[in-house]
Structures are given as C-alpha cells and as structure tokens.
C-alpha cells in the first residue's frame, strides 16, 4: 500500500523537486548534527597571506623562473610547477609596484598571476569547468534562438 502511494507521488514529476529538496534538508540536518569534524592540518596547496605583499591574497611566493615550493599530491607528475607563480607582465608589474590594493585586479586580468595549481597540477579540473559553462551557454543560446513551434 505504502509503495503504491510512494510510486504515485513519484510518478508526477512536479513532486520530484520537493522530495529532493526535503532529502537535501534532512541530509543537511544530519550533517550539522555530525559536526564538528576534525580539520586535517596537512592540506594540499597551502597558501598563507603575506602582509604587505601587493599580490595579496594570491601570492604564492618565489621570484619568477625560480621554482617556488608547491605542496602537491604527486610532485613527480608536475615537475615544472612553481616556476612562473609570480610572473607578471610589465603592466601588472607596474600596478603591483605602485599600489598594494590591486591583488584581485592583477590576478583577474590577462597577463596577471598564473596560479599554477589551476593550470599545472590540477589542469584537468580547469578544462572541465569551462566545459560546463560552455555547455550551459550552448543550451541557453539554443533555447533562446528557438522559434515558437
């Protein structure tokens, strides 16, 4: 009997979203009850805020073309990581030398800091992320341009 009721509720696809939302809510409460979880101190890719650095909070340290230390999972797989962590183009260098409040601007414009975690050790993630965006834009563009049937 109860299975019948459940299957009837699930057969209407308007109900699936509320059911999933309820499951998410229950799971969140269970997760909150299971807190606190122990934080593991030995994290990958650590980064500390260097006071006074113009590249804050994206400073990974090291002069350009000298290998900075990056704590990655398999250092043997990315032997060139850390060489260009602080390389700046002339414009970004100019900005960084004249103000110490433009770290986000420097990292966000082309020619700024290359965060090598994104492009070297975890490059595949960075490929998949724009792919998700691209697929989403493709769907939106197709639906927007579709003529009324």
């Amino acid at each position: 009997m109860i299975i019948q009721k459940i299957s009837r509720a699930l057969s209407n696809f308007d109900n699936i979203l509320p059911i999933f939302a309820a499951a998410c809510a229950v799971m969140s409460i269970i997760t909150l009850l299971s807190l606190p979880l122990a934080y593991h101190e030995d994290q990958l890719y650590p980064k500390q805020i260097v006071p006074g650095s113009p590249l804050n909070p994206y400073d990974r340290g090291g002069p350009p073309f000298t290998q900075a230390v990056i704590h990655s999972q398999y250092p043997a797989n990315s032997p060139t990581a850390g060489y260009v962590t602080s390389y700046l183009t002339p414009l970004s260098l100019f900005i960084s030398q004249h103000t110490s409040y433009m770290g986000t601007t420097i990292v966000a414009h082309p020619g700024g800091i290359l965060d090598e975690i994104l492009y070297n050790t975890r490059g595949l993630d960075t490929v998949v992320e724009p792919t998700i965006l691209f697929i989403a834009f493709a769907i939106a563009a197709y639906i927007f341009r579709k003529r009324e049937a």
Partner: peptide, 28 residues
C-alpha cells in the same frame, strides 16, 4: 524541473568534495 534538481544537486555534491578535502587533506 529537472534543471532545478540538477542545480540543487550540485550543492551536496561539491559540499561532499569540500568535506573530503578538509577532513583528509587530499582529494586523490
């Protein structure tokens, strides 16, 4: 409707990845 569910599903999904990273210090 399915798009909404897929959107909502990313929250627990990435929360799980974040919790794994925070509690174990690795993702591999």
């Amino acid at each position: 409707q399915y798009g909404l569910v897929a959107l909502a599903g990313t929250v627990p999904l990435f929360a799980a990845a974040a919790m794994v990273a925070a509690t174990t210090g690795t993702l591999s």
